[in-house]
Design a protein around this nucleic acid. Structure first.
Lengths: 114, 114
DNA sequence: TTCCGTAGTTCAGAAATTCGGAACTGTTGA
DNA sequence: TCAACAGTTCCGAATTTCTGAACTACGGAA
């Protein structure tokens, strides 16, 4: 398995973010991670919503999220812990992530401080 | 030519917006329309940036923007006038459009009132 | 009217992308 | 050493995107 690629914060492209989150399934995964706080794993998502997502698709979703700069993934023993890069992202693209999650109606509770 | 479809404001889906604007060329067209104020035409864009965009591609870009709910197109004589639906959109998805244009570094001057 | 030019749309096939099952890799625990 | 589990990679099928060419729509000139 090749090492995981994470773009530097300054290399993150807005089009990559929008593309990654233009898939509702990916957006839901991201929102779930954003709400979960601690690193969510891939298999914890076997069935997000009502459908069972094949694990190759799931793996690919995480890859897209990771390579667009939305999440950071780190192997921890046998599983892969994923966490959002929200703080960095909000600095680089102010208000973007929050506006997107809000648009999807998936803004995590703890973000609603305003 | 079939009549142009425009979604009602309440039918606009966030994923469609993100998808439409995840193409930098389309995002640039949208930003240009947002800045232009009055209705921009298709052919005024023959070469946005450095590349000449084929008109069938351009037509398709406008279609995607229109059907996602980002713009409204109206035939005016021989040409097609396009304008953004920013006011409506900002009510439905607060801050979204502004955050996206800002992320692309394409926020029109007149929006920078804050 | 008819014809011409301009603006934009539709069509169709080639190219690129996405999806997901099957096989594989890496890690842990027995 | 082996089995089980988490996740990745591979690869072919299905879908989507791209764009040149043909087409439609409108307006103006004769």
């Amino acid at each position: 398995m090749r090492p995981l690629f994470h773009p530097a914060i300054e290399d993150i492209q807005p089009e990559a973010i929008l593309y990654a989150l233009s898939d509702p399934e990916r957006a839901a995964i991201f929102a779930w991670l954003a709400g979960a706080g601690c690193g969510g794993t891939c298999s914890a998502l076997a069935d997000l919503g009502d459908r069972t997502i094949p694990k190759s698709s799931l793996s690919n979703h995480f890859k897209v999220l990771r390579e667009s700069g939305l999440i950071r993934s780190e192997r921890q023993g046998v599983e892969m812990r994923n966490q959002t890069r929200c703080a960095e992202l909000d600095e680089r693209f102010p208000g973007l992530i929050k506006a997107i999650l809000t648009a999807y109606g998936q803004l995590p509770e703890q973000w609603k401080v305003d």
